[in-house]
Simulated scan of single mutants.
Amino acid sequence: MAVRRRRPGPVAAAVLLLLAVATQAAASPIKTVVVVVMENRSFDHMLGWMKRLNPEIDGVTGGEWNPTNASDPSSGRVYFGEGAEYVDPDPGHSFQEIRQQIFGSDDASGPARMDGFVQQARSLGDNMTAAVMNGFSPDSVAVYRELVGEFAVFDRWFASVPSSTQPNRLFVHSATSGGATSNNPEYVHYY
Rank of each mutant, 00 (worst) to 15 (best):
A25G: 14
A26W: 09
S28W: 15
P29D: 14
P29N: 13
I30C: 13
K31T: 15
V33F: 03
V34L: 06
M38W: 14
E39R: 05
N40Y: 05
R41P: 01
S42V: 01
S42C: 15
S42Q: 12
S42I: 09
F43L: 07
D44Y: 05
H45W: 07
H45L: 04
M46H: 01
G48A: 06
K51D: 08
R52C: 10
N54W: 08
I57G: 03
G59D: 00
V60F: 05
V60A: 08
T61K: 08
G63A: 13
E64Q: 06
E64A: 12
N66Q: 15
P67S: 12
P67Y: 03
P67W: 05
P67T: 08
P67E: 00
T68E: 06
A70W: 00
A70V: 05
S71V: 02
S74D: 15
G76K: 06
R77E: 01
R77C: 05
V78R: 02
V78M: 09
Y86N: 09
V87K: 00
D88I: 10
P89F: 14
P89Q: 07
P89V: 10
D90V: 01
S94I: 03
F95L: 12
F95Y: 03
Q96G: 09
E97T: 14
Q101F: 04
F103G: 00
G104Q: 00
S105F: 04
S105Q: 15
D106E: 09
D106H: 09
A108I: 05
P111I: 04
A112I: 11
A112W: 06
R113C: 15
R113M: 15
G116Y: 04
F117D: 02
F117M: 12
F117N: 00
V118N: 01
V118G: 01
Q120W: 12
Q120N: 10
Q120V: 09
A121F: 06
R122A: 09
L124A: 02
G125Q: 11
M128H: 04
M128K: 04
V132P: 02
V132Q: 00
V132L: 04
M133V: 07
M133I: 07
M133W: 05
N134I: 00
G135W: 01
G135N: 04
F136N: 00
S137V: 06
V143Q: 14
V143A: 14
V143Y: 13
Y144F: 10
R145Y: 07
R145H: 11
